[in-house]
Design a protein around this nucleic acid. Structure first.
Length: 332
DNA sequence: GCATGTCAAGTTGTG
DNA sequence: CACAACTTGACATGC
């Protein structure tokens, strides 16, 4: 653990997939399953789930080997598990016990190698929806990911608020009411992220404080949908929502594919442009998920860039970023 | 084999 | 009013 590594305290995270490492996750469709008798469905699903659990284990080993400190687990790790027609539970699968054992190994391995695991349910989870059926399936999906998170030791299930329906305040109130119905398992892990269309950090802060929900700060979304806060202010305010949670602050970072002046800055680039790294993040203890199409290659390049940045700043007299902690490295 | 259209789900904004 | 964009492949089908 050299002096060099101690400077940058960020724990960098990989999102879901690998570009070059031979790790892949299988899936299936509800349509394909629906043509099979139930027994065949469960056998097919069992194979896919076993494959995915084993690849998750290899993913944890691999990110640890690469010096990456966090991994976001793809939502369909167990595909179609909450589907109304072809849904299933692990103990219905022929190899359900074996799959559960692999998940336990994932948890132990992640703990031993200090890899932080998280989930990010996708856009279909919309807690403030006015449609009861949408809320019900959203809760079901969250509870599924909550059980999975508990099994593998993930401490974050991060979502967006979702729709506005013409009245942000009322939507946030509905969110709070549904939040109260969630299990402790989900509630203790749930976090809220600012998005690039509707809900800014400013919009989310009161709700996050009221319900003690940590705020995941996505700086790219913030830049696409500004709210008057500077990046520093947003980072600091988001950090305050993590205090008392017993967990390290979580942020997201990406670069625009077509540049900030392009017609569509929301699209993610293959790599992170070092110019997009908020300088106020340097030297802070936080987890940063790297949302970039080149996947692990992008995280590795960012790590190298950050260390280079450290070299630039190491010149005597330049101490704008403090080093408060000891023994803290890139891949804590 | 290989190319290509499809895949559960919600919401918003654009053409 | 229809459709793409959110994440992104990989599956399933048909030549």
């Amino acid at each position: 653990m050299g002096y060099l590594e101690r400077w940058v305290r960020m724990r960098l995270g990989l999102c879901c997939l690998f570009k070059e490492e031979p790790i892949s996750f299988r899936t299936t469709t509800a349509r394909a399953l629906s043509t099979l008798p139930r027994g065949e469905q469960l056998r097919k699903l069992s194979h896919i789930c076993r494959n995915n659990a084993e690849n998750l284990l290899r993913a944890v080993d691999t990110v640890a080997r690469l010096g990456i400190g966090a991994f976001r687990i793809m939502s369909p790790l167990f595909p179609r598990m909450t589907h109304p027609e072809v849904g299933y539970s692990l103990d219905q699968l022929p190899d359900g016990q074996g799959i559960a054992q692999v998940l336990t190994t994932v948890r132990d391995t992640a703990q031993k190698k200090n890899i932080r695991l998280s989930f990010h349910p996708d856009q279909f989870v919309v807690l403030p929806s006015p449609h009861p059926a949408v809320v019900a399936s959203s809760i079901q999906e969250l509870e599924y990911q909550g059980r999975l998170a508990a099994a593998v030791g993930a401490d974050v299930i991060n979502i967006h608020v979702g729709g506005v329906y013409g009245d942000k305040g009322q939507a946030l109130e509905r969110f709070a009411r549904v939040f109260a119905q969630l299990s402790d398992n989900v509630r203790s892990r749930l976090t809220l992220e600012n998005d690039d269309v509707s809900y800014t950090v400013t919009d989310l802060l009161p709700l996050c404080r009221q319900l003690s929900i940590p705020l995941v700060y996505d700086v790219h979304h913030h830049r696409c949908k500004p709210d008057g806060l500077s990046v520093e202010e947003a980072t600091r305010l988001a950090e305050s929502t993590w205090q008392g949670s017993g967990r390290e602050q979580y942020c997201h970072l990406s670069s625009p594919k077509f540049g900030w002046k392009g017609t569509y800055p929301k699209a993610h680039a293959d790599y992170i442009d070092p110019a997009d790294i908020p300088s106020c993040w340097l030297g802070r203890a936080m987890t940063v998920d790297v949302e970039a199409k080149a996947k692990e290659l992008a995280v590795l390049r960012l790590m190298a860039d950050l260390q280079q940045k450290r070299l630039d700043k190491i010149v005597p007299g330049s101490s704008e970023v403090g080093d408060a902690g000891g023994g803290v490295t890139l891949n804590r």
